[in-house]
Amino acid sequence: MNITILKYIFFELLRSRFVISYAVFLAAISAGVAYFSNDELKTSLTLLNVVLFIVPLVSLIFGSIHFYDSEEFIEFLLTQPISRNTVFRAEFLALASSLSIAAVAGLIPALILNGISSTFIFLLFISASLSFIFTGLAFLSSSMNSEKVRGIGLSIIIWLLMSVLFDLIVVLLIVVFSNYPLERFIIIVTALNPIDLGRILILLKTDASAMMGFTGASFKDFFGSTAGMIASAFSLVMWALIPYLFAIRTFRRKNF
């Protein structure tokens, strides 16, 4: 694997104004939250909401913008003896990992102020996973649309769909079918959405899980079990992998 390009793009992104301001922005929020709540658990819960909202949005939109902005350079690179797969993989890995690093770095102030805990480590892990997943989705929507406006528009729609509409539909289904046993259905459905999965995995680790009562207990049984852990990890990996594979497939057929 040729890592010249990956190395270059990665460092280029790390010192880019956008990635730095993203990290600083998150750092300001996490420092603020940690300072005012002064309690590791409360900080984790508040930051969880911030992470679930911001990380997918930023990864999707910045991912798309970056993809379009890099198009000319990508075209230039492809005139060199290097395969499309290598270039695409380099772009994806560089962007996803620099966004992950920015997200994790942005949460570090809370870690310093409130101390380390397994919940917080988990939060860092979720932030990094969501960065990878939504960068992949951004690349998919961008490689499918040659027009920048449409690509970014599609990214925003993907975000709305996954962080808002999906949940609304699930709530609606739960209410409509409340007479039926729904636990299994809900577990499957939430595992299908990485944002929900991240939220539930963290909630179950905090004392908010006590509020989930008997319903929560069955979720906890599942997600706490080895099978549940494997299923969650599998779902997250698939979410990172499948959009990436579709995107690379489109990219390989693209005409510049």
């Binding site: 280029e12 890099s70 000319e72 350079f73 290097i82």
Partner: peptide, 26 residues
Amino acid sequence: GYMPQNVNYPHNLRVSELFEILSELR
């Protein structure tokens, strides 16, 4: 060897860096 009509290289990229990348690639 290819020379395009016009190309926009990344703004932050230095000329020397581009030459280094290319010789590493080639």
